[in-house]
Amino acid sequence: MLLAVDVGNTNVVFALFDGREIKSRWRVATDPRRTADEYAVWLLQLMQLQGFDPKAVTQILIATVVPRALHNLQVLSQKYFGREALIAGEPPVEWGFAADVDQPRSLGADRAVNAIAAHARYPGDLIVVDFGTATTFDVIDYMGAYKGGIIAPGINLSLDALVNAAAKLPRIAIEPPTRTRSVIGRNTEDQMHIGVFWGYVALMEGLIARLRAEIGRPAKVIATGGLAVLFGDHTDIFDHVDADLTLDGLAILAERVAAQ
């Protein structure tokens, strides 16, 4: 079985694969100071509670955008699974696509893995929107080449900045306005919900419209990440909502390495 590890700026996701099927997944807050032993106490117990034998793990693949977190995950792999972890983007786990950008080495592992999975799952030109700590928009052409994209502040970051900078504004949940369909809020909380939620929808729709116009060919829009489902219910801009896109990309990479 494959243990895929997706290390984001906010969370680390561990997913156990049997072939291309996700059997289970577990999530923990990203903390570069977390030791291999701390990961093991948490992860091995969860695996055993769900009936998975750690000895069944034959391959471990890590994709990370937090370099400081990598060492302890490598130690976890060696010490508790008896495996050398493969690192996405490093030999022998090459991306396998052309990165048509100014600085190919600066492409984040999460975005590269999304590009691989999206091209494998959906034909044609693609725009992948990933809702993470930042919201990224990535353009992949019909041949699978990565053409570039956009980085925007994630909605949680935007809300944090608003609340922290304005002393009288309350902390609100990220959710669509439920008490009114109007975009003219009658109280502070409604006005914040409208601004944060519908403002973010407008940002997405505006940027995607500009990307499609610049691509010049029909392009499908694939949404992934934690808030993809929430926004997918309130805009028709997405052709597919695929919450497991990043993990599926890791499974594809693992299959390629195993076949070498």
Rank of each mutant, 00 (worst) to 15 (best):
89 G>P: 04
89 G>N: 01
90 E>G: 06
90 E>K: 14
90 E>Y: 06
91 P>G: 00
91 P>I: 00
92 P>Q: 00
93 V>H: 00
93 V>Q: 01
95 W>Q: 08
95 W>N: 01
97 F>C: 01
97 F>P: 05
98 A>D: 11
99 A>K: 12
99 A>N: 14
101 V>D: 03
101 V>L: 08
102 D>I: 08
103 Q>I: 11
103 Q>N: 04
104 P>S: 15
105 R>M: 10
107 L>E: 11
108 G>N: 10
108 G>R: 08
109 A>K: 01
109 A>H: 00
110 D>C: 03
111 R>Q: 12
112 A>I: 00
114 N>S: 11
114 N>R: 12
115 A>D: 02
116 I>E: 02
120 A>P: 01
122 Y>N: 07
123 P>H: 08
123 P>R: 13
123 P>C: 06
124 G>L: 15
124 G>V: 03
126 L>Q: 07
127 I>R: 10
129 V>C: 14
129 V>P: 12
129 V>Q: 07
130 D>K: 04
132 G>F: 11
132 G>K: 03
132 G>H: 07
133 T>V: 06
134 A>L: 11
136 T>W: 06
136 T>E: 13
138 D>T: 05
138 D>Q: 05
138 D>I: 01
139 V>M: 04
141 D>N: 14
142 Y>T: 14
142 Y>E: 04
142 Y>V: 06
144 G>M: 00
145 A>G: 08
145 A>S: 12
146 Y>D: 08
146 Y>P: 03
146 Y>E: 12
146 Y>Q: 05
146 Y>K: 08
147 K>R: 13
147 K>Y: 09
147 K>T: 02
149 G>A: 02
150 I>L: 07
150 I>T: 15
150 I>P: 10
151 I>N: 04
152 A>G: 05
153 P>C: 10
153 P>M: 04
153 P>W: 04
153 P>G: 07
154 G>H: 13
154 G>E: 06
156 N>H: 09
157 L>M: 13
158 S>Q: 13
158 S>T: 15
159 L>K: 06
159 L>S: 02
159 L>T: 01
160 D>V: 02
161 A>K: 00
162 L>M: 09
162 L>T: 09
163 V>F: 12
163 V>I: 15
164 N>Q: 09
164 N>D: 09
165 A>Q: 09
166 A>L: 13
166 A>H: 13
167 A>R: 07
167 A>E: 09
167 A>D: 12
168 K>A: 13
168 K>R: 15
168 K>Y: 15
168 K>I: 10
169 L>T: 02
170 P>M: 09
172 I>P: 00
172 I>S: 04
173 A>M: 08
173 A>W: 01
175 E>K: 15
176 P>M: 14
176 P>A: 03
177 P>H: 05
177 P>D: 10
177 P>L: 07
177 P>N: 06
177 P>C: 06
178 T>F: 08
178 T>H: 14
180 T>P: 03
181 R>H: 12
185 G>F: 08
186 R>Q: 15
187 N>E: 11
188 T>E: 14
188 T>N: 04
189 E>P: 00
192 M>Y: 00
193 H>M: 11
193 H>G: 04
196 V>I: 14
196 V>W: 13
197 F>P: 01
198 W>A: 11
200 Y>S: 07
200 Y>L: 06
200 Y>G: 09
201 V>E: 13
202 A>P: 00
202 A>E: 03
202 A>Q: 01
203 L>S: 09
203 L>Y: 12
204 M>G: 06
205 E>N: 06
206 G>Q: 15
207 L>I: 15
208 I>E: 04
211 L>S: 05
